[in-house]
Amino acid sequence: MATAVKEKQKSNVVLDYLRPGKAMPTVWCAGCGHGIVMNGIIRAIDKTGLSKDEIVMASGIGCSSRMPIYLDFNALHTTHGRSLAFATGVKFARPELKVMVVTGDGDALAIGGNHFIHACRRNIDITCILLNNYIYGMTGGQGSPTTPSQAFSTTTPYDNAEKHFEPTKLAIAAGASYVARTTVYHAPQMEKLILNGLLHRGFSLIEVISNCHTYFGRLNRQGDAVKMINDFKERSVPIARAKSMSAEELEGKIVTGLLHKKETTEFCDVYQSVVDRVQKGM
Protein backbone atom coordinates (compact mmCIF):
# COMPACT_ATOMS: atom_id res chain seq x y z
CA MET A 1 0.00 0.00 0.00
CA ALA A 2 2.75 2.46 1.08
CA THR A 3 4.72 1.62 -2.08
CA ALA A 4 1.66 2.28 -4.22
CA VAL A 5 1.21 5.70 -2.62
CA LYS A 6 4.87 6.49 -3.21
CA GLU A 7 4.62 5.42 -6.85
CA LYS A 8 1.60 7.62 -7.27
CA GLN A 9 3.42 10.58 -5.69
CA LYS A 10 6.36 10.08 -8.02
CA SER A 11 4.10 10.46 -11.01
CA ASN A 12 2.60 13.61 -9.58
CA VAL A 13 3.81 16.48 -11.74
CA VAL A 14 3.19 18.94 -8.90
CA LEU A 15 6.05 17.54 -6.82
CA ASP A 16 8.54 18.43 -9.57
CA TYR A 17 7.75 22.10 -9.10
CA LEU A 18 7.94 22.47 -5.33
CA ARG A 19 10.94 24.44 -4.15
CA PRO A 20 13.72 22.15 -2.86
CA GLY A 21 14.65 22.81 0.75
CA LYS A 22 11.44 24.66 1.59
CA ALA A 23 9.81 23.12 4.62
CA MET A 24 6.13 22.25 4.36
CA PRO A 25 3.29 22.67 5.20
CA THR A 26 2.24 25.95 3.66
CA VAL A 27 0.79 28.81 5.70
CA TRP A 28 -2.64 27.98 4.29
CA CYS A 29 -5.34 26.50 6.55
CA ALA A 30 -6.39 22.90 5.96
CA GLY A 31 -8.93 22.92 3.14
CA CYS A 32 -7.95 26.36 1.84
CA GLY A 33 -8.70 26.80 -1.86
CA HIS A 34 -5.32 28.36 -2.52
CA GLY A 35 -3.64 24.95 -2.66
CA ILE A 36 -5.98 23.92 -5.49
CA VAL A 37 -4.98 27.07 -7.37
CA MET A 38 -1.28 26.36 -6.84
CA ASN A 39 -1.88 22.89 -8.24
CA GLY A 40 -3.67 24.35 -11.28
CA ILE A 41 -0.90 26.88 -11.92
CA ILE A 42 1.75 24.14 -11.83
CA ARG A 43 -0.17 21.91 -14.23
CA ALA A 44 -0.70 24.82 -16.62
CA ILE A 45 2.97 25.81 -16.51
CA ASP A 46 4.02 22.21 -17.09
CA LYS A 47 2.00 22.17 -20.30
CA THR A 48 3.70 25.33 -21.65
CA GLY A 49 7.05 23.55 -21.85
CA LEU A 50 8.78 26.56 -20.30
CA SER A 51 11.80 25.87 -18.13
CA LYS A 52 11.72 26.87 -14.46
CA ASP A 53 14.53 29.36 -15.10
CA GLU A 54 12.39 31.28 -17.58
CA ILE A 55 9.58 31.86 -15.08
CA VAL A 56 9.39 34.72 -12.63
CA MET A 57 6.58 34.58 -10.07
CA ALA A 58 5.97 37.83 -8.21
CA SER A 59 3.51 38.46 -5.41
CA GLY A 60 2.62 40.99 -2.74
CA ILE A 61 1.37 40.39 0.78
CA GLY A 62 -1.40 38.12 1.96
CA CYS A 63 -2.20 34.42 2.07
CA SER A 64 -2.15 33.91 -1.71
CA SER A 65 1.04 35.94 -2.05
CA ARG A 66 3.01 33.27 -0.17
CA MET A 67 2.74 30.98 -3.18
CA PRO A 68 5.99 31.94 -5.00
CA ILE A 69 8.00 30.91 -1.93
CA TYR A 70 6.79 27.31 -2.31
CA LEU A 71 7.43 27.03 -6.04
CA ASP A 72 10.75 26.42 -7.77
CA PHE A 73 10.79 29.54 -9.96
CA ASN A 74 12.47 32.93 -9.67
CA ALA A 75 10.43 34.26 -6.75
CA LEU A 76 9.81 37.92 -5.97
CA HIS A 77 7.75 38.24 -2.80
CA THR A 78 7.28 42.02 -2.56
CA THR A 79 5.44 44.67 -0.58
CA HIS A 80 1.66 44.87 -0.14
CA GLY A 81 -0.10 45.67 -3.41
CA ARG A 82 3.04 46.44 -5.42
CA SER A 83 3.73 43.12 -7.11
CA LEU A 84 2.46 44.24 -10.52
CA ALA A 85 4.76 47.27 -10.46
CA PHE A 86 7.76 45.09 -9.53
CA ALA A 87 6.73 42.59 -12.20
CA THR A 88 6.50 45.40 -14.75
CA GLY A 89 10.14 46.23 -14.03
CA VAL A 90 11.21 42.59 -14.42
CA LYS A 91 9.26 42.04 -17.64
CA PHE A 92 10.30 45.31 -19.25
CA ALA A 93 13.96 44.71 -18.34
CA ARG A 94 13.94 41.09 -19.57
CA PRO A 95 10.99 40.56 -21.97
CA GLU A 96 12.19 37.02 -22.75
CA LEU A 97 11.17 35.92 -19.22
CA LYS A 98 7.64 34.66 -18.52
CA VAL A 99 6.36 36.84 -15.69
CA MET A 100 3.45 35.83 -13.48
CA VAL A 101 1.82 37.58 -10.56
CA VAL A 102 -0.12 35.84 -7.81
CA THR A 103 -2.28 38.21 -5.82
CA GLY A 104 -5.35 38.40 -3.62
CA ASP A 105 -8.45 40.60 -3.54
CA GLY A 106 -7.04 42.98 -0.90
CA ASP A 107 -3.55 43.04 -2.41
CA ALA A 108 -4.64 43.66 -6.01
CA LEU A 109 -7.74 45.78 -5.59
CA ALA A 110 -7.32 47.87 -2.42
CA ILE A 111 -3.71 48.82 -1.77
CA GLY A 112 -2.62 47.73 -5.25
CA GLY A 113 -5.62 49.08 -7.19
CA ASN A 114 -3.64 51.75 -9.00
CA HIS A 115 -0.91 49.35 -10.13
CA PHE A 116 -3.59 46.87 -11.19
CA ILE A 117 -5.45 49.20 -13.54
CA HIS A 118 -2.23 50.58 -15.05
CA ALA A 119 -0.78 47.11 -15.69
CA CYS A 120 -4.06 46.35 -17.51
CA ARG A 121 -3.86 49.63 -19.40
CA ARG A 122 -0.30 49.01 -20.62
CA ASN A 123 -1.27 45.51 -21.70
CA ILE A 124 2.16 44.35 -20.58
CA ASP A 125 2.72 40.61 -21.02
CA ILE A 126 2.13 39.49 -17.44
CA THR A 127 -0.17 36.68 -16.34
CA CYS A 128 -1.96 37.73 -13.17
CA ILE A 129 -3.77 35.10 -11.08
CA LEU A 130 -6.11 36.82 -8.65
CA LEU A 131 -7.26 34.57 -5.82
CA ASN A 132 -10.49 36.14 -4.65
CA ASN A 133 -11.76 34.86 -1.30
CA TYR A 134 -13.68 38.04 -0.42
CA ILE A 135 -11.69 38.76 2.71
CA TYR A 136 -8.29 39.53 4.28
CA GLY A 137 -7.22 36.13 5.56
CA MET A 138 -3.68 36.69 6.82
CA THR A 139 -4.65 39.52 9.18
CA GLY A 140 -7.67 37.61 10.44
CA GLY A 141 -10.82 38.32 8.45
CA GLN A 142 -11.21 42.00 7.63
CA GLY A 143 -13.41 43.32 4.83
CA SER A 144 -11.83 43.68 1.36
CA PRO A 145 -12.93 45.48 -1.84
CA THR A 146 -14.65 42.27 -2.96
CA THR A 147 -16.48 41.60 0.31
CA PRO A 148 -20.14 41.67 -0.81
CA SER A 149 -22.49 44.32 0.56
CA GLN A 150 -24.08 43.15 3.79
CA ALA A 151 -21.47 40.43 4.31
CA PHE A 152 -19.80 40.16 7.69
CA SER A 153 -16.13 40.48 8.43
CA THR A 154 -14.25 41.56 11.55
CA THR A 155 -14.31 45.16 10.28
CA THR A 156 -17.92 44.95 9.12
CA PRO A 157 -19.29 43.30 12.27
CA TYR A 158 -22.86 44.60 11.82
CA ASP A 159 -23.13 45.12 8.08
CA ASN A 160 -20.95 46.04 5.10
CA ALA A 161 -21.96 49.53 3.99
CA GLU A 162 -19.56 49.41 1.04
CA LYS A 163 -20.12 48.15 -2.49
CA HIS A 164 -17.76 45.63 -4.02
CA PHE A 165 -15.50 45.57 -7.06
CA GLU A 166 -15.79 43.05 -9.83
CA PRO A 167 -12.15 42.56 -10.75
CA THR A 168 -12.85 41.17 -14.22
CA LYS A 169 -15.00 44.17 -15.20
CA LEU A 170 -12.33 46.49 -13.84
CA ALA A 171 -9.63 44.71 -15.86
CA ILE A 172 -11.64 44.75 -19.09
CA ALA A 173 -12.44 48.45 -18.72
CA ALA A 174 -8.79 49.24 -17.95
CA GLY A 175 -7.49 47.49 -21.09
CA ALA A 176 -6.47 43.93 -20.17
CA SER A 177 -6.55 41.77 -23.30
CA TYR A 178 -7.32 38.37 -21.69
CA VAL A 179 -9.79 38.16 -18.80
CA ALA A 180 -11.23 34.97 -17.33
CA ARG A 181 -12.94 33.78 -14.17
CA THR A 182 -13.29 30.40 -12.56
CA THR A 183 -13.51 28.86 -9.10
CA VAL A 184 -11.51 26.33 -7.11
CA TYR A 185 -14.29 23.81 -7.80
CA HIS A 186 -13.57 23.96 -11.54
CA ALA A 187 -10.01 22.58 -11.44
CA PRO A 188 -9.72 21.42 -15.10
CA GLN A 189 -11.23 24.68 -16.37
CA MET A 190 -8.88 26.65 -14.12
CA GLU A 191 -5.86 24.84 -15.56
CA LYS A 192 -7.03 25.53 -19.12
CA LEU A 193 -7.74 29.22 -18.48
CA ILE A 194 -4.36 29.72 -16.81
CA LEU A 195 -2.58 27.88 -19.63
CA ASN A 196 -4.28 30.04 -22.26
CA GLY A 197 -3.48 33.13 -20.20
CA LEU A 198 0.19 32.12 -20.19
CA LEU A 199 0.13 31.59 -23.94
CA HIS A 200 -1.60 34.92 -24.57
CA ARG A 201 0.71 37.83 -25.46
CA GLY A 202 -0.50 40.75 -23.35
CA PHE A 203 -1.93 41.29 -19.90
CA SER A 204 -3.99 38.32 -18.78
CA LEU A 205 -6.11 38.20 -15.65
CA ILE A 206 -7.49 34.93 -14.33
CA GLU A 207 -9.70 35.50 -11.32
CA VAL A 208 -10.16 32.36 -9.24
CA ILE A 209 -12.83 32.37 -6.56
CA SER A 210 -11.32 30.64 -3.56
CA ASN A 211 -12.71 29.62 -0.17
CA CYS A 212 -11.67 31.15 3.11
CA HIS A 213 -13.84 29.01 5.36
CA THR A 214 -11.71 30.04 8.33
CA TYR A 215 -12.87 33.65 8.22
CA PHE A 216 -15.33 34.46 5.44
CA GLY A 217 -17.12 31.16 5.75
CA ARG A 218 -17.29 31.19 9.52
CA LEU A 219 -18.35 34.84 9.86
CA ASN A 220 -21.04 34.41 7.18
CA ARG A 221 -22.23 30.94 8.25
CA GLN A 222 -21.24 29.34 4.97
CA GLY A 223 -19.91 26.18 6.51
CA ASP A 224 -16.68 24.29 5.97
CA ALA A 225 -14.42 24.09 2.92
CA VAL A 226 -16.44 21.36 1.21
CA LYS A 227 -19.70 23.23 1.71
CA MET A 228 -18.23 26.47 0.40
CA ILE A 229 -16.70 24.82 -2.68
CA ASN A 230 -20.00 23.07 -3.37
CA ASP A 231 -21.66 26.44 -3.15
CA PHE A 232 -19.26 27.80 -5.81
CA LYS A 233 -20.28 24.90 -8.02
CA GLU A 234 -23.98 25.60 -7.56
CA ARG A 235 -23.72 29.34 -8.10
CA SER A 236 -21.50 29.10 -11.21
CA VAL A 237 -22.84 29.83 -14.67
CA PRO A 238 -20.71 29.34 -17.80
CA ILE A 239 -20.32 32.53 -19.83
CA ALA A 240 -22.12 31.00 -22.84
CA ARG A 241 -25.25 30.41 -20.75
CA ALA A 242 -24.93 33.69 -18.84
CA LYS A 243 -25.21 35.62 -22.10
CA SER A 244 -28.88 34.63 -22.40
CA MET A 245 -29.71 35.36 -18.76
CA SER A 246 -31.12 38.57 -17.33
CA ALA A 247 -29.39 40.70 -14.70
CA GLU A 248 -31.90 39.50 -12.11
CA GLU A 249 -31.23 35.87 -12.98
CA LEU A 250 -27.47 36.47 -12.67
CA GLU A 251 -27.78 38.04 -9.23
CA GLY A 252 -25.50 36.15 -6.84
CA LYS A 253 -24.13 33.94 -9.64
CA ILE A 254 -20.46 33.43 -10.55
CA VAL A 255 -19.99 33.72 -14.30
CA THR A 256 -17.11 31.46 -15.34
CA GLY A 257 -14.97 30.97 -18.44
CA LEU A 258 -13.13 33.25 -20.84
CA LEU A 259 -14.93 36.59 -20.45
CA HIS A 260 -12.84 38.76 -22.75
CA LYS A 261 -10.07 38.35 -25.29
CA LYS A 262 -8.70 40.99 -27.60
CA GLU A 263 -5.77 40.83 -29.99
CA THR A 264 -3.85 44.04 -29.57
CA THR A 265 -0.27 45.29 -29.28
CA GLU A 266 1.77 44.50 -26.20
CA PHE A 267 3.76 47.15 -24.30
CA CYS A 268 7.28 45.63 -24.46
CA ASP A 269 6.89 44.79 -28.17
CA VAL A 270 5.86 48.35 -29.01
CA TYR A 271 8.70 49.82 -26.94
CA GLN A 272 11.20 47.52 -28.69
CA SER A 273 9.97 48.73 -32.08
CA VAL A 274 10.53 52.30 -30.86
CA VAL A 275 14.08 51.38 -29.78
CA ASP A 276 14.75 49.77 -33.19
CA ARG A 277 13.44 52.87 -34.98
CA VAL A 278 15.43 55.32 -32.82
CA GLN A 279 18.61 53.29 -33.25
CA LYS A 280 18.18 53.35 -37.02
CA GLY A 281 17.89 57.14 -36.74
CA MET A 282 14.32 57.22 -38.03
Binding site: F86, G89, K91, F92, R94, H118
Partner: peptide, 12 residues
Amino acid sequence: GSIAAVIGASVA
Protein backbone atom coordinates in the same frame (compact mmCIF):
# COMPACT_ATOMS: atom_id res chain seq x y z
CA GLY B 1 5.40 51.91 -8.69
CA SER B 2 8.51 53.65 -10.03
CA ILE B 3 10.85 52.37 -7.35
CA ALA B 4 9.14 48.96 -7.50
CA ALA B 5 9.86 48.72 -11.24
CA VAL B 6 13.44 49.89 -10.64
CA ILE B 7 13.98 47.09 -8.12
CA GLY B 8 12.33 44.56 -10.44
CA ALA B 9 14.63 45.59 -13.30
CA SER B 10 17.67 45.39 -11.05
CA VAL B 11 16.96 41.82 -9.96
CA ALA B 12 16.45 41.06 -13.65
